[in-house]
């Protein structure tokens, strides 16, 4: 391409600067988790591991972490089931309103989280009379997690085609056997990738959670948010944030290994 040297240099510079802006704030959080100064004065007067030890001892944090794991696991299971069913229906059959199904599945993440949040909490609270708790959090999360599984399975089914399944049927396998021995093994990595994304999405969610969690239910994001404005909790919150940044590399790495391509949904 015939770009001038200056233009090239400017574009590369913009890319480098942009990536720096993306990563510097995250690096500061990780660095601050070792900052000896309680209020994160800059530059740090010294480094310490005390905050990591304090964070590990914090029972509130550990309970919140456990709640988050439960909520994300429940939501992921439901999303796997519903997302796979919907993807099969849309990809393998043609029927009236097929496009609407896709739209319906995307809707919960396309609308602002606060709308989904109050719509669900209103329904639980005033229409159905279900007390808010872990169960309602899982239902809320599952609603917007379906799309991640749906998109992954749909893409896989589109690539697979039906000929292998037809071969299986021709060889005498019934519907269930074909699914167990042929279809499912071929979809496994798509399910894993979709499930991973669903788990991450649920684990990080705060807005829908705020409205669907009862008074006693505290997920990790809620715990972080509650402690964000308490000065003496700041170092512990910062450690949790740093740990989450470091841990976020794992799903990326896994997703890369599974799909060989990076995709958000």
């Amino acid at each position: 391409m015939n770009l001038s040297r200056t233009a090239r240099a400017v574009l590369w510079g913009a890319l480098a600067a942009g990536l720096a802006v993306i990563y510097v704030p995250l690096a500061v959080v990780v660095l601050n988790s070792f900052n000896a100064d309680r209020t994160f004065g800059w530059p740090p007067p010294g480094f310490t591991l005390d905050w990591w030890a304090a964070a590990w001892r914090s029972t509130g944090m550990r309970e919140a972490l456990w709640t988050s794991v439960q909520a994300a696991s429940g939501a992921t299971l439901i999303a796997l089931l519903l997302g796979t069913m919907a993807a099969f229906a849309v990809q393998r059959y043609s029927f009236f309103g097929r496009d609407t199904v896709s739209l319906l599945i995307v809707l919960p993440i396309a609308l602002p989280g606060i709308v989904t949040g109050i719509a669900l909490s209103n329904t639980f609270h005033t229409v159905l009379g279900i007390p808010l708790g872990l169960f309602t959090v899982i239902v809320g999360h599952a609603t917007f997690c379906v799309v991640t599984v749906y998109n992954n399975v749909l893409a896989r089914l589109r690539r697979l085609g039906v000929s292998i399944e037809e071969a299986s049927a021709d060889l005498g396998a019934d519907t269930f056997t074909t699914f167990r021995l042929v279809t499912f093994p071929m979809m496994r990595s798509a399910l894993l990738a979709g499930g991973l994304l669903a788990f991450a999405l649920s684990f990080d969610e705060i807005i829908v959670t705020t409205f669907t969690a009862g008074a006693g239910v505290r997920t990790l994001p809620i715990w972080i948010f509650e402690n964000l404005f308490r000065p003496n909790q700041a170092p512990v919150v910062n450690v949790v944030a740093a740990a989450l940044i470091v841990l976020s590399v794992i799903p990326i790495w896994l997703a890369q290994r599974i799909t060989g391509e990076a995709s958000r949904y």
């Binding site: 990536l19 990080d204 940044i245």
Partner: peptide, 25 residues
């Protein structure tokens, strides 16, 4: 991958990172 990775870091953590960066000290 470099652009995607921060999407996985918690939303709250990133907003918090800016709170720390922008705070008076």
């Amino acid at each position: 991958i470099a652009v995607l990775t921060p999407l996985w870091a918690s939303y709250l953590v990133k907003a918090y990172a800016w709170r720390v960066l922008l705070s008076a000290d």
